Simulated assay, not measured.
Amino acid sequence: MQAVQMIELTQQNLEEARGYCLRSKPLSTGYQNKNNWLKNELEAGLKYIKLMENGKPAGFIEYTAAEYSSRVVHANDYLIIHCLWVNISGKGYGTRLINKCIEDARQQNKSGVAVVTNSDTSWTPSKDIFLKNGFRIIQEGPYGFELLAFPLKDDPLPYFPNNWEQRLQTSHELTIFRTNQCPFVDVATENFLEGARKLGLEAKVIDMKNREELMKLSPTPYGIFGVTYRGQLVTFHRLTVHSTIKKLKLLKDIVISVRKGG
């Protein structure tokens, strides 16, 4: 018989219980950055819950109050789910974790729960499991992003900002906007910097240190990682070095064509 339990990470058990992502490389920069980020966010009320099957990690969920969230969403009095992942399918583990978040929202007398999804990347949760659990799509954003909500009250629904084109003009040079919410951001950054170097391009890295900066600067609703160049979005998720070079070459060709009037 399978023994299933949920373990909530706290400042006291963080080092022992350990996060889910990149746990095989606990000494990596990305993992350490995430741990340091968690220490601050757990104190502010963030929930990070691992689901264990027979003592082994089977999945996890991370969520927090909207005012501390790493997603670029206006969601007064909502909980925002950052991450949901299960590596054992068909057992309802994802639903268990979602229901845990909804129950926390009820206990905190929140207006509801929201999540940002995007079918073009595995860096966001899949919308399908949320739709199966009573969430509904309330807004479509740029670059394939969608905002889903599970309202608990008849209060105003969450919404995306509407100034995405303006955000792309924040920096005309090649710029990486990032936070430490995801341990893979470090790998994504290094891949991109290496690809840029191979093309002779310099990239500026902007570390968004708080929600105020993230809400102002992030080029997409995802919030924690985004790259822009000459008024264009390059990516909002990790690319290989090869893919980085292809993308940047394409954007450079477009810029040259525009300058020539092509």
Rank of each mutant, 00 (worst) to 15 (best):
D154M: 01
L157E: 12
F145Q: 12
E146C: 10
K153C: 08
L147C: 13
E140H: 14
Y159Q: 11
L152D: 00
G141Q: 05
P156Q: 08
F150Y: 14
D154A: 07
P161D: 12
D154R: 04
G144R: 03
E140D: 15
N162S: 15
E146M: 04
F145L: 11
I138W: 05
F135V: 08
F160Y: 05
Y159N: 09
P151Y: 03
N133P: 02
L148E: 05
L157T: 05
K153P: 01
F135G: 05
I138V: 14
Y159T: 13
L148C: 02
L147Q: 10
I137N: 08
E140K: 15
E140Y: 06
P161R: 02
G134M: 03
F160I: 12
F160S: 06
F130Y: 14
I138N: 06
G144E: 03
P158T: 10
P151F: 04
E146S: 14
F160R: 01
F160K: 00
L147A: 13
F130K: 00
E140R: 15
G141L: 09
G144C: 02
F145R: 09
A149W: 00
P142F: 04
F145C: 13
D154L: 05
E146Q: 13
P161M: 07
D155H: 14
P142R: 01
Y143W: 15
P158W: 06
A149G: 03
I138P: 04
F130T: 08
Y159I: 09
K132T: 10
P142W: 00
P142M: 03
K153W: 05
D154T: 12
D155C: 07
Q139L: 11
L152Y: 06
K132N: 04
L131V: 04
F150W: 04
F150M: 05
I137T: 15
G141V: 11
R136K: 13
Y143R: 02
K153D: 13
L147E: 13
L131K: 01
F135N: 01
F130I: 03
Y159A: 13
L131D: 14
Y159W: 09
F160G: 14
G141D: 12
P156N: 05
F145I: 09
P151T: 08
F160C: 09
Q139I: 07
Y143H: 15
G141E: 11
L131C: 06
L147R: 03
F160Q: 08
G144L: 03
Y143S: 14
F130R: 00
L148G: 07
F130N: 02
Q139T: 10
A149F: 02
I137D: 11
E140W: 00
F150D: 02
I137G: 04
G141F: 08
K132Q: 08
N162I: 15
I137V: 15
R136M: 10
L157A: 10
Y143F: 15
D154I: 04
N162K: 14
L148Y: 01
R136I: 12
Q139N: 11
P161G: 13
P161W: 07
K153R: 11
F135T: 11
L131F: 05
I138L: 07
K153F: 05
D155P: 02
F130S: 03
L147P: 04
Y143L: 12
L152F: 01
I138C: 08
P156R: 11
F145M: 08
P158S: 12
Y143C: 14
F150Q: 00
P151K: 01
I138F: 07
Y143M: 13
I138E: 11
N133S: 04
L152C: 04
L157S: 06
L131Q: 08
P142E: 12
Q139M: 09
P158K: 10
N133I: 09
D154V: 07
N162M: 08
